[in-house]
Simulated scan of single mutants.
Amino acid sequence: MFVVVMVALVVAIWPRGDDDRVISGDTTTTVGTQTSVPVDAGELAGARTEAALADCPAPTAAPGTHAALAGIVAECLGTGRPYNLGEGTAGTPLLINMWATWCYPCRQELPILSRYAARAGSKVNVLTVHAKEGAGNPYLVLKFLSELGVRLPATLDTNGKIAAALRAPRVFPSTVLVRADGTVAKVLPQVFHNTDDIAGAVRTHLGVDT
C-alpha cells in the first residue's frame, strides 16, 4: 500500500520545466524545478517519529580553515532543526552520500551504507544528503527511509549548495569522502555493493581502517 501511495506522491511532485540532465545509475532522467506538496504538520511530525533517524554528526574539533562545507546550513531531517554542516562535521573523517528517492540504485545502496556506518563506529561519520530534486518534500523522504529501515543521519540539499560546495556530480548515488579538516579527499560517482568496498575506499582516500 505504501509503495502505491509513494508512487502517487512522486507523480504529484515530479518536477516540470527548466530541464536538467540527472543521471541515476545507468538511466538518464530529465528533471527540472522541484515543487513541494503541502503536508499537515502533524503528519510530518509523525513521519519523523516513525523514521527515527539518527541525529546529524556533532563536531569533535573546530572547523578547518578550508572546510568545503563552511557556512552551509541545511535541515537535519531527523530533528527538523537547521544544521551547520561545516561546524557539525568538523574533526572526524566524513562519508557523505548524495542520493534521491527516485534513484533505484540508491535504494539498493542505502542499507549497505547503514551497515557500514555501524561497522565504522566513531572512526568515520556517515551523512546522507538528499539531492535538490525531491528535497522540497521531507515527508516523502522520511517515508522512503522508513520503508527501507535506514536510520542514517540525513539532510536535504534544497538549494543545491551542498552539492556545489563538494563539487559533487549530478550522478546518483555519489559518495564524497571528506577529511577531518573539512577538505574533500575524493568524489566517487559509483554504487557500492558491500561494506568491504566502502571500507577499501575509505582506507585508500582517507587513510582510516574501518
Score class of each variant (00 low, 15 high):
I96H: 00
A164P: 06
P38R: 04
E75V: 11
A41W: 02
E75M: 02
A185H: 06
T204W: 06
A67I: 05
V150H: 07
D196C: 03
G182C: 06
V141C: 07
C106H: 04
K143Y: 04
T195M: 09
I198S: 04
F192A: 05
V39N: 08
P153V: 04
G46P: 11
K132I: 11
T65L: 15
L53I: 14
G80S: 07
L140F: 12
A67Y: 08
V150F: 05
V10R: 07
L206G: 09
G17K: 03
A131V: 14
L77S: 00
P105H: 01
A118P: 10
R170D: 13
E75T: 15
P82I: 04
V37Y: 14
A70S: 13
G200E: 01
G46S: 09
P169V: 10
V39M: 05
V187C: 08
P63R: 08
P189G: 09
P15L: 03
I112H: 08
T89H: 02
R170Y: 09
L140C: 05
V202M: 02
G207E: 03
A70E: 13
I13H: 06
D157V: 00
A12L: 12
H205E: 03
G78H: 11
I72A: 06
L53F: 15
P93L: 08
A163L: 07
W14E: 00
T92I: 05
D20Y: 00
N125D: 15
P138C: 03
V7L: 02
A164Y: 00
T210N: 08
G200V: 01
A135F: 06
T195V: 10
A154M: 11
R167Y: 14
A61Y: 09
D196Y: 00
N84A: 09
A8I: 12
H66T: 14
L94W: 06
D196M: 06
T49A: 15
T92A: 09
T27G: 02
T28Y: 00
V5D: 13
V178H: 01
Y104C: 09
A201C: 11
G88H: 05
G42E: 04
A58N: 06
L177A: 04
A51D: 12
R48I: 13
P59Y: 03
H193N: 06
A74T: 08
P59G: 09
P138F: 05
P59V: 01
P169G: 04
L166Q: 10
V202L: 05
A131D: 12
A118H: 11
I96K: 00
D209I: 11
M1K: 15
A45R: 14
V73S: 02
T175E: 00
E43S: 15
A47V: 04
L142H: 10
A12P: 07
H205D: 00
R21E: 14
D209C: 07
T204V: 13
S36C: 14
T101S: 02
V178Q: 10
P169S: 00
A90G: 02
T27S: 07
G71H: 05
R21C: 12
T27D: 06
F2L: 12
G32S: 09
A45N: 07
L44G: 00
V31Y: 02
N125L: 15
E43K: 15
V208I: 14
G182R: 01
V10L: 11
H205G: 02
E50R: 15
